[in-house]
Amino acid sequence: MRTALRTLVTGVVATATVLTCSTAWATPPGPGVTARIISRTTVNGTDYTLREITVPPGQSTGWHYHDGPLYGVVEQGTLSHFDSGCAPDGVYRTGEAIREPAGADHVHIGRNLGTTPLVLDVLYVLPHGAPFSEDAPNPGCPFQ
């Protein structure tokens, strides 16, 4: 009897959750986006992490922002960068540098609109223990 009651309660809670909760607001990176840490150190409460990020053709980083500034170089391909107003705020080609400011008021997405993988080397300068990025909802742009 208890097992049947537990099963019933669990089913009701699961159904109510599915029916009443809205879609998750985070916009994760597209399929195949990868990152690997090249180097990492912490100095005076600040984490300095160098990562290589690869974005396949047609994919994106997802909408996000950072708790500290980022400095990057395009090693291969072309990065199309969009701000929260859906406007392109930069196109960066192989060898070009990019800087992303910190804070929730700097929501953005990086997209690979080309036909070759986009490879970025990125230096994250973050408060100790902060995540590499903070997910953000799509601000209403017709793309992801």
Rank of each mutant, 00 (worst) to 15 (best):
C21S: 15
A24R: 12
P29F: 06
T20N: 11
A16P: 00
T34M: 00
A16R: 05
L8D: 11
A26D: 13
A24C: 08
V18A: 14
A24W: 10
G32S: 03
V12P: 01
A35H: 04
V33T: 09
T23C: 12
G11I: 00
A35G: 07
A26G: 12
W25K: 14
A14L: 06
R36S: 14
A35N: 03
W25G: 13
T34R: 03
C21R: 15
T17V: 14
R6C: 10
V9S: 07
L19G: 00
T7A: 12
S22F: 13
T7V: 00
L19V: 11
T34I: 02
C21L: 15
V12Q: 04
V12L: 13
I37Q: 11
A24S: 14
G30Q: 11
V9H: 05
T23F: 12
T27G: 05
T17K: 06
I37H: 00
T10F: 07
V18Q: 06
P29K: 06
V9N: 01
W25S: 10
V9K: 04
R6S: 14
V12Y: 02
P28I: 05
V13R: 06
R6V: 13
C21M: 15
R6H: 11
T34V: 04
T27L: 08
V9W: 03
V12E: 03
T7H: 08
P28E: 10
T23L: 15
V12K: 03
T23K: 15
G30L: 10
L19F: 05
V33W: 02
A24G: 11
P29S: 06
V9M: 03
A24I: 12
T20L: 15
T23D: 14
S22Q: 14
T10D: 08
L8N: 07
G30A: 09
I37M: 10
S22W: 13
T7Y: 00
T10S: 11
W25Y: 07
P31T: 05
I38V: 15
A35L: 03
T15K: 02
T17H: 09
G32F: 01
V18R: 10
A16N: 00
T7G: 13
